[in-house]
Design a protein around this nucleic acid. Structure first.
Ligand SMILES: [Mn+2]
Ligand SMILES: [Mn+2]
Ligand SMILES: [Mn+2]
Ligand SMILES: [Mn+2]
Lengths: 219, 219
DNA sequence: AATTATTTTTAGGTAAATCTAAAAATAATT
DNA sequence: AATTATTTTTAGATTTACCTAAAAATAATT
């Protein structure tokens, strides 16, 4: 069975929204996909008949086994292409997401496997997100939110919480990327801003919003 | 302005059919695109309002300057991706066309330019067809049809006349590819078959149909 | 030149994916 | 518990890209 680009985008969005137990609501999906709730309802009915998800009206939606499998295949392609764009073609890590949104829908199975082999079976994409292998398995990241990092504990940036151009542009300006070493010097409870110090640099303050968008692992 | 995948496929098909002077007919296009004449008429009206072509009813169609520019951009992407698949990912030259049919619609301009640079600005794709550069210029091939090659003139295969799996499978079996050196030993007028001899191999006979699907350049 | 065959266009309709507006169900407040 | 607010679904349209069948234009034969 094959699926349209639109259907694939719905499956991927549900996959990203259904963290853990809960069910995904129609409105959440509408927001994520920049569409209207009525359109989402239509598509959920259709994807249900294709057995990609379980859905009862007014009760929200969850992916089926088949749905998860498809979602992982799309995420795998997205992240492999991002890795290719940064590693092979020298794109900046902040300019690959949109391109990968298109490339993730290229259907050739053989292409994905050959690309993976060419890249050397990378485990993480340029934003620190794990790349599912050909069986859908991916490394579990034990990284924590920067906001929860204790003061004076050396850590390394390992992921970002969003792919927005705005965030990535800010990180570029502050010279923060995946792999950047830093530690927290102070936390200010007034606005939850924190003072961080990058390795071999002066300390500076970043906002709560920025700290929450960064993930780090202890060293 | 941006165009749908369907629109791009129409523009590319017209480009390939309008060799030289003539105008392209509705039926030719319908055959090429595996669709019906009525659908073609609908689309031609639409593409005319977008100024990609000139079209008067019952008179056939030709691309405008804008249309040619778009067609060359698509052909460029198609052939660069084919080169990438064969050269970088080790695909066989007979298995890349379908994949490139999808990849040619990826929109990022930057991606094309970076890919071109990564590949070393190749001039010809794996089937011997010239790759347009970023300005739409491409090398003129002075290759001739194998059927027109004089007897006992050493030549080198430089192109194929079709991308069909059937043809490429036959060529693979006969160990003929781009760059293969050969010469014609005899021509049989009964069925227009020709006897060819590959470098360092015994001679064998090939059909008129196969000879017409091969292009060679003299050495 | 008239007839016949072929090509091309028009007319009308379908399916996918979207939308707005109204109705129905569920959740939150008083 | 009743009212109000929010979420979600249905109803009905729209757009794109198709299709079939019939009409119109052009080309080929007699
Ligand atoms: Mn991404
Ligand atoms: Mn990513
Ligand atoms: Mn091709
Ligand atoms: Mn080619």
């Amino acid at each position: 069975m094959s699926f349209s680009i639109t259907e694939e985008n719905y499956i991927k969005a549900i996959f990203h929204l259904q963290q853990g137990e809960g069910t995904v609501s129609t409105n959440e999906l509408a927001a994520e996909l920049h569409t209207k709730a009525a359109s989402v309802t239509d598509m959920l009915k259709k994807l249900k008949t294709k057995k990609l998800l379980s859905y009862e009206k007014y009760k929200g939606v969850r992916l089926s086994g088949e749905g998860k499998k498809l979602a992982l295949a799309i995420v795998r392609k997205h992240r492999l292409w991002e890795y290719f764009l940064v590693d092979t073609l020298q794109f900046g890590w902040d300019e690959v997401h949109e391109v990968a949104e298109e490339l993730e829908h290229i259907s050739s199975k053989k292409l994905v496997e050959k690309l993976d082999a060419f890249l050397g079976y990378p485990k993480f994409d340029p934003h620190g997100d794990p790349i599912p292998d050909s069986h859908g398995k991916m490394a579990v990241q034990q990284h924590i939110n920067l906001i929860d990092l204790p003061v004076n504990k050396p850590a390394e940036v390992s992921g970002v919480g969003s792919q927005s151009t705005e965030l990535l542009e800010l990180l570029k300006h502050k010279h923060i990327g995946i792999g950047t070493r830093l530690e927290i010097k102070r936390k200010f409870s007034f606005d939850n801003s924190i003072e961080i110090k990058l390795k071999n640099q002066n300390a500076f303050t970043i906002s709560q919003q920025l700290a929450q968008a960064l993930f780090v692992k202890l060293m």
